[in-house]
Nucleic acid binder design. Sequence first.
DNA 1: TCTTATTTTGGAAACGTTTCCACAACCCAA
DNA 2: TTGGGTTGTGGAAACGTTTCCAAAATAAGA
Lengths: 340, 340
Amino acid sequence: MGITIKQIAKKSGFGVGTVSRALSDDDVSVKAETRQKILAIAQKYGYVKNASAQALASKKSRDIGLVIPAYFKSPFYSDFYIKTIAGGIEQLSGFEKVKGYKLRILFLRDKNSFSELLQESQALKLGGLILTPYCRDFFIQESDIKKLEIPVVVLSQEIDGPNIRSVVLDDFKGGYDGTKFLIALGHRRIGVIRGFYEDIEERFGGYKQALNDYGISLREEYIMKGNALQDSGYDRTIKLLRLKDKPTAIFALDDEMAYGALEAIRTLGLRCPDDISVMGFDGIEISRFTTPALTTVVRPVEKMGKVAVRLLVDSDMWKKEKVIKVEGEVVARKSCMAIG
Amino acid sequence: MGITIKQIAKKSGFGVGTVSRALSDDDVSVKAETRQKILAIAQKYGYVKNASAQALASKKSRDIGLVIPAYFKSPFYSDFYIKTIAGGIEQLSGFEKVKGYKLRILFLRDKNSFSELLQESQALKLGGLILTPYCRDFFIQESDIKKLEIPVVVLSQEIDGPNIRSVVLDDFKGGYDGTKFLIALGHRRIGVIRGFYEDIEERFGGYKQALNDYGISLREEYIMKGNALQDSGYDRTIKLLRLKDKPTAIFALDDEMAYGALEAIRTLGLRCPDDISVMGFDGIEISRFTTPALTTVVRPVEKMGKVAVRLLVDSDMWKKEKVIKVEGEVVARKSCMAIG
DNA sequence: TCTTATTTTGGAAACGTTTCCACAACCCAA
DNA sequence: TTGGGTTGTGGAAACGTTTCCAAAATAAGA
């Protein structure tokens, strides 16, 4: 049913080479007038490029693989991945340079998946790969990533390599802003629950800096080390609230621990935010549905997806810098209130 | 880097035609011994089929398009779509007939997207299309779906057409089971809040049938008509609870209305489930995180994704029946308790 | 053993692009 | 007017499969 380049060539009177060049918009060696004519005919007959033929001839498809780890179904993280996809797709359709690029979801099942991934990238002649957070360690080693021969964008982690770019959150600033927000509400005794990933260090650094900038001294007993999961948030909060000079606010360095904190407060018969404020970090969607709704530093996941795609599709941007930082934002909901 | 069919032909001493046939496992016109030899060589050199070439030559790719509507980022539904994807992918990797098939996410942005969709299906020579719930009406008309010339699987809606199959939940049974569950807990005065989609009619039918089967007469004042959204759940619950002989349980025919119900109960100073039980319908993941956690009829979304993929990939199954019904299941959490 | 089916194989053509190389057309300066 | 450079264009070859047709090999029947 569809018309082909050859037929356009015949109809327009130009050769197939010229038609092909006219139809690929980055090729400038075609007279504007010629391109005009060819485009008009293509338009008229509803020409659609055959993606397979294109990929075969150019030895490279216009597919971008978005890699998602197996446990992405977790209610905590599903919207995280969906938003990354959404951002990517939006970028794909919004940015004019990307004409014809498409997103493809690749799924990482277990530790052996990496070889499969390699194979798929090869079979599909992928134009690039996006690695969503938490792919590594569990499923892919950093060294594996460096082995990949196609352009790779890694989300939420900095990895160095000639064809690797990273898009990361400014964790330090997030930690700083969250703390500052609490301070602005009048809090002076602010407990913090850390996780164990590297990025958490940065967040914690922001916390310390903010305290320092506002002349509040760091108290060792307010610093708890969690393990990023809900239970540890619960546990550490109980400890914090048993202190004689207990904090008026708790900054959990990820949302999941913040849920634990909320639960702990309820268990102890206290009320949030009346008795104690809680701030989370991540901006997972279900934070909206906790009671009270969680105030949290949200990570702009959708934007990260956009940037990742853009990097793979826009060679100017690709060349510019190896690490791109995006900023989070404190979203005020119900779990924090002013005191004093 | 990769080896091609031609090279395998040379190495094995067979012709390219034979090699190609040996490598496509549904082709039986190759001697077992020959296939054995060829496969061994392919294995040895790590042969990977070039998907583009295959699609070009056969005029049909092994891609299945999974269509997701624009508002899929909604926290209510994101895990719904993610699970559909997950199920689809799992099927793709689990079922041996599907070798080489891949999932591709297609995104429906607005009412004009349908023509784009057509174009993409054409450009990518898709092997099939899966339409997730809520694509239609908002973005695609039923008549559009019938126009598609490739195999289509529609989720959660029955549409008839020569190359259309449907995978739907047994809504009647879900409504029946949910009601039965409440009756088993001792409830006799059960309010119901309906939505306005067709499937809700079925669910409501199940409710009526269950009441009837257990000898409970239908009370008009217990039947409320909502609009599927949270607010209406809130609103109708208030009304139900102001009745002088108020219900002891409320069956909201979708989860979102159930959240509204929970909220209304809280507002009125009542407690769930102590004063009144609430049952939802859908099994959206965040139902787990409401307080109290919602007891609900869960729709096996992941399974539906699996079945959809399987249909497109397994021609035996495709031929068998046009509508496939899957069953939901009551998942008991905290929002219902026994009375009396 | 010869003939006729049946199974198995070889190889060319086709799929719709891109890309390379050669050449034509044009422009400008000398 | 000629020469050299630049800009545009034509068309063949290549990409790696599938598929069709013809032919070869084998099996079956007489």
